[in-house]
């Protein structure tokens, strides 16, 4: 099972080392990590997608992360009504023969072409991980040159922020 956790941490030097060190030390299975500033200047939000066998293992991940002094709060956004998004940029080979096919695919996925030249295109898509996986799969037919993904971030629906949940 995959879960997405919003980990609110004190924005201090060394905090990413502490989080990464813990994940490595406890041998947790992490699918992605995305960190960034928040509405509060001294708080960083780390979005972690963790892959675990069962709820007890998930509880271990949450409890161990919670022990870090810099961690202020952890919210499991999988458990509540929330929106998950990831951004991907894909550089794909696109010659005059394949270009229109690729544009079709891009339209079907409601993706965007953000760069184009005689040989390649860069396609941008924001969406849930499964949608991004699907686009990557389809584009594989046209020879993907490189992929950059941000890792998932998530936000709860409704007015209440994670810090108050």
């Amino acid at each position: 099972m995959k879960y997405i956790l919003a980990v609110l941490v004190d924005n201090r030097p060394g905090v990413l080392t502490h989080v990464a060190g813990l994940i490595s030390r406890r041998a947790f299975n992490i699918e992605s990590i995305a960190a960034g500033y928040t509405e509060e200047p001294d708080v960083t939000r780390i979005n972690i997608v963790v892959s675990v066998d069962d709820e007890i293992e998930l509880e271990q991940v949450v409890n161990q992360l919670n022990k870090l002094i810099d961690v202020i709060k952890i919210v499991n956004l999988t458990r509540i009504d929330s929106i998950q998004r990831e951004l991907v940029m894909i550089k794909v080979k696109a010659n005059p023969a394949t270009r229109s096919d690729i544009i079709n695919v891009v339209e079907i996925f409601r993706a965007k072409i953000v760069d184009v030249n005689r040989e390649t295109m860069v396609i941008e898509l924001t969406g849930e991980q499964s949608k991004i996986d699907a686009l990557c799969e389809v584009l594989a037919d046209y020879e993907i040159i490189e992929i950059a993904r941000t890792g998932a971030i998530a936000l709860s629906r409704g007015p209440i922020p994670a810090k108050s949940l």
């Binding site: 030097p13 060394g14 080392t17 502490h18 060190g21 813990l22 490595s24 030390r25 870090l68 002094i69």
Partner: peptide, 14 residues
């Protein structure tokens, strides 16, 4: 030291 001691301390500071 902070990098080295992260997995073996309760907390550390530079």
């Amino acid at each position: 030291m902070c990098g080295i001691t992260t997995p073996i301390t309760k907390h550390n500071y530079l």
